[in-house]
Design a protein around this nucleic acid. Structure first.
Lengths: 205, 205
DNA sequence: TGTACATCAGTGAACGCGCGTTCACTGATGTAC
DNA sequence: TGTACATCAGTGAACGCGCGTTCACTGATGTAC
């Protein structure tokens, strides 16, 4: 792990982590392969022992991000316990928590403009994350009267969109608006109101 | 307007439009000043007669975007006619319509990472857009029983977030998810459910 | 109406820079005997 | 236990490129007399 002399030991992962730190601070476009190499204590050329190139390195960052993301969401969902509703709300919170704790990953995943189909590994990881979310929505969907039930994939998309919007607009110093609300509260209340609109939450809260 | 020989006539605006087209197709980071100059039929150096530099040119794109955006939203809001609710929904639709029709502007505004405070003109335009949205939310807020009424700025933020999320995740070929729903429908239903959650829409629709 | 001149928008060549990538190489490691 | 050798991770120099920006300039335009 500690770099000792000529051979690094675990350069591949060290590069990924260097890249993530750089992406976090410079954005996915500002990130350079040379800087990543430098901050891993290595020549730019060394990167090519482990990655096909710049794009491939970003792809691996995104892939690891989707894995962590899916794990986190899965853990938050906790097989629908204690109730489908609570579990669903927990995944919403997990979404924001992930974006907070792994900003470099989040940017690599959603802001780098990377093509998911570039690598099958990446596509698979992304698909897995999506599946967790859809499963939560699907379980919840069963509690809505069938005649006025929107497709589960639709309200999973609604919640995903709101979550992503909150991250982009209110956890960055972005131009959209500066709400006087902490993003966590904003998302929590937003999802709450939305779920009430679906008839899944009593109107008292 | 037609470029004739040495003097261009209206190079400043021509550069803005060239930049917007490039931003639309390459993203705000892929956009280069040299390309913008080239596609306006002019030497890169000529750009400096009209803009302080690359950043300044992007800033002007964003500024014009916020102006158009505010105009469009304002027109859609139509002074709260026919009802506060319908007018609010119309602004939601206008948001997505703007992102669709002016993708270059939208990207310059929300994805270029530009600092709003770089230029006072830009900050002012952004503020104006925000004000239109908040006004719509404020008018609507009066129809909610006072005891369970969230701050107007909060639900304006909710709707803005969902709108932005829909644009980013579902109108681009983005990785989030590929919903089988057209973005317009997704946003319309999403806002509908949200407003029902606020008690502003009867539960029948 | 014609000429002299000030203005200024755009030219074109040049700059320094840092990028991603390549290549032949070299030094460290581990395995076979 | 010691030596020869294959493997391969990393070096360092070099490349071509296109970028944003600068500078002295020149050509077109419009105005004063």
């Amino acid at each position: 792990m500690a770099k000792q002399g000529y051979h690094h030991g675990n350069l591949r992962q060290a590069l990924v982590e260097a890249a993530l730190t750089l992406i976090e601070s410079q954005g996915p476009q500002g990130f350079t392969l040379s800087d990543a190499a430098k901050s891993a204590g290595v020549t730019p050329a060394a990167v090519y022992r482990h990655f096909a190139g710049r794009e491939d390195l970003i792809g691996e960052c995104a892939r690891q991000g989707f894995e962590i993301f899916a794990d986190l969401m899965d853990h938050a969902y906790d097989d629908g316990k204690p109730t489908a509703l609570r579990a669903f709300e927990a995944t919403g919170r997990a979404y924001l928590a992930f974006a907070r704790r792994f900003p470099g990953h989040y940017m690599a995943m959603f802001e780098s403009g990377i093509s998911l189909n570039a690598h099958p590994d990446l596509a698979r990881a992304a698909e897995r994350a999506r599946a967790v979310f859809n499963r939560a929505a699907d379980a919840l969907s069963k509690h809505i009267p069938a005649d006025k039930r929107p497709p589960a994939s639709m309200f999973s998309a609604h919640v995903w969109a709101m979550s992503h919007g909150v991250v982009e607009l209110y956890t960055r110093s972005a131009p959209g608006a500066r709400a006087p609300f902490p993003p966590e509260e904003l998302l929590e209340t937003g999802i709450g109101i939305y779920l009430r609109g679906l008839g899944l939450v009593p109107a008292d809260a």
